[in-house]
Design a protein around this nucleic acid. Sequence first.
RNA 1: GCGAAAGUGGCGGAACUGGUAGACGCGCUGGAUUUAGGUUCCAGUGGGUAACCCCGUGAGGGUUCGAGUCCCUCCUUUCGCACCA
Length: 866
Amino acid sequence: MQPQYEPSVVEAEAQAFWADRRAFAVKEDPNRQSYYCLCMFPYPSGRLHMGHVRNYTIGDVITRFLRMQGYNVLQPMGWDAFGLPAENAAMKNGVPPAKWTYENIAYMKRQLQSLGFALDWDRELATCQPEYYRWNQWLFLKMLEKGIAYRKTGVVNWDPIDQTVLANEQVIDGRGWRTGAPVEKREIPMYYLRITDYAQDLLDALNDMPGWPERVRAMQANWIGRSEGVRLSFPYELGGEQRLLSVFTTRADTLMGVTFVAVAAEHPLATYAAQSNPQLAAFIEECKRGTAQEAEIALMEKKGMPTGLFVDHPVSGERVPVWVGNYVLMTYGEGAVMGVPGHDERDFAFALKYNLPIKQVIEVAGAEPAFTDQQWHPWYAEHGTLIHSGKYDGLDYQQAVDAIAADLKAKSLGDKHVQWRLRDWGISRQRYWGCPIPLIHCPKCDVVPVPEEDLPVVLPEGLVPDGSGNPLNKTPSFLDCKCPKCGGPARRETDTMDTFVDSSWYFLRFASAKNDKAMVDERANYWSPVNQYIGGIEHAILHLLYARFWTRVMHDMGLVKVQEPFQNLLTQGMVLNDIYSRRTGEGAIEYFNPADVTVQVDAKGARIGATLNSDGQPVEWEGMRTMSKSKNNGVDPTKLVEQYGADSVRLFMMFKAPPEDTLEWSDDGVEGASRFMRRLWRMVHEHVTAGLVSGAVSGELTDEQRNVRRAAHSTLQKVTDDLGRRRVFNTAIAAVMEFMNTLSKFEDQSPQGRAVRQEALELVVQMLSPIVPHAGHALWRALGHSDPLIDHPWPQPDPAALVRDSIDVVIQVNGKLRSQITVEASATEQQIREAALADSTVQKWIEGKPVRKVIVVKGKLVNVVV
RNA sequence: GCGAAAGUGGCGGAACUGGUAGACGCGCUGGAUUUAGGUUCCAGUGGGUAACCCCGUGAGGGUUCGAGUCCCUCCUUUCGCACCA
């Protein structure tokens, strides 16, 4: 054994050993309990960032721990390889996206391997490979057959930078989720998947997913957004024709308080009115621009303009004016709302601003202050009893809704309705680097699906986009084809699929790797569902909801047995680092990497300032944020591995914070982890150089030997629980560190003492091995074992070692800690009570006061109440 | 505004079931080794106090023999969603 810990040597050796044996390639084995541990696969952007390292280390610790516990563990890895950055890189460097992507994959794969993750590389896939995406196409055609996929022309979100349509879910604050560009509205034919057909099921199932964080379930439920109400229509006449203006409301009880109706700028009625009203047309244009651009700014300003049109109240028949409102969303409900200023805060403000009547129709008993049309009070929006509502007067909320819905239904002007916030998933993208949608446009036969036997429609890989739209449109070898129906000349569809399609089922493909006859096979049922899924919270809605939907579709087609793809979900926290900056002359800000900055501290170690190493001048600390290029606070994993070794990096990341919390990067912390590794190595080395002994401890032990053994086995108990049930790794590592502090004070060199130390070190190495597997591998061999540690069963605590003959009991007087006594482990409650009261310190505290009550918590504490 | 989570030393965090607050690590202080720096090792490190002790988990109340943990009110921060009808 080397006296010095040299991570580069140790790690290269262990990695070669595992690779030679193909140690992590797993086979389906019905006789063994399967466990599928999956980390969200990376986009091959070029290099790994620390978030990846954290993500995959968490997965690796779980994988290795469960493997030692006897599970047949699958941990695969692949590449979410289609997407826009490859096209951007292509435009910048003139390199085809395919080349760029495959080069990145090769580099990142080496990085992953250098970190020693226990991955089954035999199952590796990249979503840009035809062997993978042909099954996207295949299932898309099946969905088309079943009507789950459909074509629709409609108003869509248009990203002017990406030149592409965004799904509703991909618009964040009116901006493209990747480009940040203000989203415009456009009409375009595209393909949708009927995720709304599954809305109820996707929502209901959330209640039965205890393995998911409450937070993520709440986010999904909000996103799906079920609301119950009434859909009703206001009749009107236009050009001599009877028409209906529909709205949805959750407050049908306030129907008699309607004094106006507001429609979205994109609403057909608004468009019609604008034809003869240039002022209104201008306002509508402003709204269309405004909503996109000013999502953050225009929070309060509610603007509107009358259309000059009127509709009839569906119950009273009164004429109600129609307004265009900038606060009405075309994408939700009917694109129109009924205005009830008396009982909706937004409508109230709107009515006040434009002098529309405000009518009270709900009374809330005891509500203060009294209703006035001058000032809004929160109680106006509460449920109550109807007034000024004719025959509905006196009804409560539910009675009113029921009665009004029934009356509307009788007139064919409305009914109860469930409205969803969730919209169907538009998957068409006007982009090159994605999975081609397998359709053919024939001048005679319209849109014709590519026959199954002609799949895959292969994406040509050599094209270089130049920013002027999809290069497929300029590639006759791709475009030109024959119509499968009539055999005439036809044009191939050039739209590609949203990359969320690719990631919606890759986990099932890992489990059916390399099958060129079917999308998935029986192996998927062996491994499914994914027992532990690990990834960032940023995927809480989009990816996870789409994957749940897609899996259900596959289930309903009889392809897989599961409906819910992910049994347990762990959303790991972000990795943060300090941000240092300086204001340069022209108001610009220059950022400095924390590695180039020295922090000044006071005598207690508190931060008082920071200076730049190169010039010694102060820099400003802006707090901690996620690592990013723009803030120049990134850390390169490969450099770290070279400097400290993969094990120290892994150890630091697992030790610094619980997996779900944010992790604050610190160079000192990695130093600390590295110090711990050297210390562990030294302890084993010192022990081993004195000659190997068996760790099988038997016979009489001294008190000290027994204490060390007990500490070792109770540490094992805690670590097993932390890694297994609790899934927190920082406390497991802390427990081992604590035990090592005990062990380093144990100097007994007798044969029995050395056997105790041998056993203790073996346990330490085993307990840490899921976290620091390379050092674990080397130290296990140094301790005299020829079997590889990865195949060694996880140790069991020895019950005999855990037995105590005496227990320390703390004593409180009136709830304040006053003393401590040691009692026999077998002592009865009565004996503990007597011993506590007899204690001299306790005597002093209760002197002269009557003892009112004595509470004994067995094995822990006594509280004397005086 | 709605939903979720969180506020504990100089810092990251621990305290899992209501039972010794601050485990473990970083940083800092002192010492030993070293020509020096680094490494390594030893000791100390919540605040107040000479000490006995007292005070301490965002603020204020409550329940309890006992509260960081449970309940109520409030404040702050973070994350997600949001003119959602």
